[in-house]
Design a protein around this nucleic acid. Structure first.
Lengths: 337, 337
DNA sequence: GTGAAAGCGCTAACAA
DNA sequence: TTGTTAGCGCTTTCAC
């Protein structure tokens, strides 16, 4: 019925252990033997039994992707990362499982422990905002489970992938400045998220470089959600001297800003320019379409998983890869009125 | 280190086999013995090793969720289903893996076979549109892999969950009729998707019941994407006698219709009413917010997985569960001009 | 109702 | 460089 390693060994005229060596790319096999075994595997369409492998070898060939589905309004972001992680795992014949965890819940660590003792993942991929949740990282190190992160805040000794969000934010604000805007507002994301901090810092950097003093009334707190964008914008548009442009820390909030503009009878981009960050599918579907920063989430997930796998498989060592950003200039930004 | 079944047996003063019986809810254990074993498991925080279980027992305790990420523009839909499936699997201590497959690709079946022989899932959950892809179903039956579906077209002998989409579509068109609309257009989804057929049928049923003859010019083909909605609407709005309301077969297309309305200088809902189907997060973020049909995707994923699991675990038999729909009346629909 | 022995398919440790 | 032996943690089969 099922082709076993032993069957391949018999066919290739070697011992089971040698087949195992070939299967695991171990040393100490001559090239000719290796080839002979490979041919036999191919011919018999041999598929190693994952449970037998992990039981005997004490490794699971499993990568778990951890995320917080509470603090992530834009689930397309996670879906794209997941796609990328999956692609990388598939390519290396690892399997992947997904694990929602909520930082706000008291049983975060208990659930993490359950994951580890139930499934024994060889490593995990962390997504914002849990990339920097200290109790999590501590527990992973104690349990000796390697991890790679997408957009981690602390970057020393961390594997994964990042983008220079601060530079990207600065660039998009400079785009507004170049259009002649001077009263530029910013809607901040959830406090303590790395993304919020970087994007705010980029905004400040651009404004300062243009010689503009920060008007505290123009910097308002949001929470990455559409509703928080609406609320923030209502505040901004009620100001006696309202902004001519709003840079929201993500696309969902930018959408909320555009909604609020409608409520106040302001035309985008004629009366007010609006831009966001992320380049979610939504941003292209709005009218006018949203100027934003492209984040290649899928690619980032793939890279993070690859770094983890290269760490696990011992080929050299995983790194923290930095990828470039790109601005998507669309209809929601125009010259200052 | 790790607590094994044998350790539990020793503590409870029984044989390993008896612990195994308790673990698997088998018969032939007295209640007192069962209780004693349970207590020992609890006390030692025993976690069975999944690989050992599946190697010895020839089952994987694994459910795979299959989807086509090609034909699914709204990935939040899949993400929500996934969340529900995961919840159900967790509750029954099954693990879940996700598997993108593309009907358009030639290697669909090869990739399915790879999934089966690599991971041996005990069952799979199917999502639209692959719920009715004949070669897939055939292969699953041959390989003896049970499946449950979300919104399958063929419903005889199928496990899973469904909603009466035709009635829902009829209801939303009746809402437009009640507002005084008579020239109501419909934008169809991808041909052959069950969703497209049901929603079109509901539209026709409502129009016919209102005594209105179908105007073929008002029924146009789309493809579930934003862009296809724009294109369809441009055609409709160019008509000499344009519709006063448009029912698009999903929210993404409805968004495209709203975009096109802007291009033609038409105000929604003043000049034209627009409604969709699905109640994606997007639908609440538009301005005006979209009238649509709520589909509880997460719940549907959970129910489908539960039906599969109840089939797998032999507790009675899985069924095809029908769940109710609900209309979300928002700002994009109003009285006919 | 319960237990003893054998073995699932693979790899670790050691030997040759 | 290659093979042998033992065993991973559980379930099966079959005996009691």
């Amino acid at each position: 019925m099922r082709v076993r390693l032993e069957d391949v060994a018999r066919k290739a005229g070697v011992s089971p252990k040698t087949v195992s060596r070939v299967l695991n790319d171990e040393a100490n096999v001559t090239d000719t033997t290796r080839e002979r075994v490979r041919a036999a595997m191919e011919e018999m369409d041999y598929r190693p039994h994952p449970s037998a492998r992990s039981l005997a070898g004490n490794r699971s060939f499993l990568v778990a992707m951890l995320y917080d589905n509470n603090d992530n309004p834009a689930s397309t972001y996670l879906a794209e990362i997941q796609d990328g992680v999956l692609e990388a795992c598939d390519a290396h014949r690892y399997s992947m499982m997904v694990r929602p965890l909520r930082m706000r819940d008291g049983d975060f660590i208990r659930r993490l422990d359950a994951l580890i003792s139930d499934h024994h993942p060889d490593g995990v991929v962390l997504t914002p905002p849990i990339t920097d949740y200290a109790p999590l990282l501590k527990r992973l190190r104690e349990a000796n489970v390697p991890y790679a992160s997408v957009s981690p805040v602390r970057q020393a000794k961390t594997l994964g992938v990042r983008m220079d969000e601060q530079q990207a934010a600065r660039a998009i604000v400079e785009h507004l400045l170049a259009l002649g805007h001077r009263r530029i507002a910013h809607v901040i994301g959830i406090a303590n998220h790395g993304a919020s901090r970087w994007r705010l810092a980029g905004y400040r950097e651009a404004m300062a470089a243009a010689g503009l003093d920060e008007d505290p009334a123009l910097v308002v707190q949001g929470a990455f959600t559409f509703a928080s964008g609406v609320e923030a914008a209502r505040h901004l548009f009620s100001l006696p001297d309202r902004p001519t442009a709003v840079f929201a820390a993500n696309d969902d909030m930018a959408t909320g800003v555009m909604w609020a503009a409608g409520e106040y009878g302001l035309k985008v981009p004629h009366d007010v320019s609006v831009c966001g960050f992320d380049d979610t599918p939504l941003s292209r579907q709005l009218w006018p379409a949203l100027t934003t920063v492209q984040q290649p989430s899928r690619e980032m997930g793939k890279i993070a998983a690859e770094q983890l796998l290269s760490e696990l498989r011992g080929h050299g060592t995983g790194k923290l890869v930095q990828i470039p950003f790109s601005l998507q200039i669309r209809g929601s930004t125009a010259a200052a009125p």
